[in-house]
Amino acid sequence: MTFFEKFTLIFTNAKYLDSMLTGLRMTFAISVGAAALGLVLGTIVALVGLASSKNPLIKLPKFICAVYVTVVRGTPMALQLFIMAFVVFAIRGFPLVVTAIIAFGINSGAYVSENIRGGILSVDIGQTEAGRSLGLTAGMTMWYIVIPQAIKNVIPSIGNELIALIKETSIVSMIGMYDLTAAAKNVGSGQNLANYLAPMTVAALFYLAIVYLLTFIIKKIEGRLRESDRR
C-alpha cells in the first residue's frame, strides 16, 4: 500500500475513521471546556489582582490569586495533570474528561489572567478617571469603560493562549485518555494499520483545521471590535 492508499483508508475504513473521530471529539471537548473555565477563572483572577488593596477583606483573595498564578506558571503541565488525575480526583468512576478540563482550565486561567491583567493596565488611566469623575462606581467604570477596551487589546494574546491550550491537550494520553493524538497512535499500531505516518498526518491536519478555524474566528471578532477606530 502506498502512503496515499493508507491515508485514504483512514477515511474509508469505518473502524479507523470512527477511532480518529472519537479522539477528535475528546480533544474538542477538553479544549472547549478548559478554554471556558480558563477564561472565567482568568478574568476573576485578573480583577482580584487589580482590585484596590485598601479593603482588608481583599488581601487574602489577592494573595491566593498571586500564589495560584506563580505555582501554575512555574510547574509543568504534565505534572499538574497527574496531580489532578492521581491525587485530587483519584476517585473511582470520576470522569477523566472532567479531570482533564479542570486541569487544563486551571492551567489556562493563570496565563489568561496575566493577559487580561496586561490588557486592563494598558487602557489609559484617563479613561478610569473620566468614568469616576462622572460619578460611576469603580465596578461600573471597569465594566462599561475599561473592560471593553481591554478586551480589544487582549483578543490576540488570548487567541494565542487558546491555540497553545488545544495543542497541549495532546498529553492527556499520559493519564490514559483517548484524544486525537492517542487515536493516531492507536490507528497506526501493529494490530491496525501498522504504519504511523498516515494517521499522524491525519491527526496533524485535524489539529491544523481546529487552529485555523479558531484563528479565523478571532480575526472576525477583532475586526468587529475595531469598528470604533474608524476615522
Binding site: D124, G126, Q127, A130, R132, G135, T137
Partner: peptide
C-alpha cells in the same frame, strides 16, 4: 460617587470613551 455626580470635570486630553 454621589459627590462626584455633582462635580463635572474636563481633562486636558478629553478622555472620551473611544468604544462608544
Amino acid at each position: 460617587n454621589a459627590i462626584r455626580r455633582q462635580m463635572g470635570m474636563v481633562f486636558q486630553h478629553f478622555n472620551l470613551f473611544p468604544n462608544m
